[in-house]
């Protein structure tokens, strides 16, 4: 039994490689994410331009941008499989758990590469200084991980429900709200400065949210995937 998780992970990595290769050929999902993020960012920056904003507002804006960009791109992995009809082949090639792990890793890669690009740009364009850099990086990392974690299984639900346009946002928003609240609260402290102890409880909450999201997805995905 002890060796069982490893094949899952290896197969998951294989699916990740396949998805990354497809993504490199078209760059559709990544372009959608980046374009969405940049457009929102430019609009915000353009309209508030010269004003120095409170950390409260900047923190909320950062997560609004990240959340809606994630919604624009993360459903793509599963919807694409349904559209091209490759679902059946994937079902035959792998069990449900490796598929989920692969898709999860792909979404994590996608979202982290987005944050690496967008977050520095965000700080520069809004003239925001970071008081607690390490805590800030940890918050963005855990937050992005949680966004990808909870979105992956919801993306699977949406793709099976016929990929109705706004369904992804409707389903994801309430489930992700606890994560967003914690992330916004931690970002606010990290940007504006404050007690590190305040951030700790937020980071713990983010950490456990991630754990619950991944475990629950692994347990439930089978029921969505094998109809």
């Amino acid at each position: 039994m002890a060796t069982k998780p490893l094949p899952w992970f290896r197969q998951g990595l294989a699916i990740l490689r396949k998805d990354l290769r497809i993504e490199f050929r078209t760059r559709y999902a990544y372009s959608a994410l980046v374009m969405f993020a940049i457009t929102t960012l430019v609009t915000v920056s353009f309209s508030v331009g010269g004003y120095a904003m409170d950390a409260d507002i900047t923190a909320a804006l950062l997560w609004i941008i990240l959340f809606f960009s994630a919604m624009a791109g993360l459903a793509r992995t599963f919807v694409h499989e349904e559209e091209t009809g490759t679902v059946t082949a994937l079902k035959m090639a792998a069990q449900s758990e490796p598929v989920l792990i692969g898709k999860y890793l792909f979404n994590v890669t996608l979202l982290l590469s987005l944050t690496v690009l967008v977050v520095p740009l965000f700080l520069v364009m809004l003239n925001q200084t970071v008081q607690l850099p390490i805590a800030f990086v940890a918050t963005v990392f855990l937050g992005a991980l949680g966004l990808a974690g909870a979105s992956t299984i919801l993306a699977a639900i949406v793709s099976k429900a016929g990929a109705k346009g706004s369904l992804m946002t409707v389903l994801a928003f309430p489930v992700l709200l606890p994560l967003l609240f914690a992330a916004i609260s931690a970002t606010r402290t990290a940007l504006g400065g404050g007690l590190v102890a305040n951030i700790r409880s937020d980071l713990l909450l983010l950490f456990f949210y991630n754990g619950v999201a991944v475990v629950a997805s692994l347990l439930l995905f089978e029921y969505i995937w094998n109809e």
């Binding site: 299984i153 099976k160 429900a161 439930l220 029921y223």
Partner: peptide
């Protein structure tokens, strides 16, 4: 099936 999965996720 799908709403059962969502209900479980939601209750978590």
């Amino acid at each position: 099936r799908l709403s059962a999965v969502y209900a479980i996720l939601a209750f978590l």
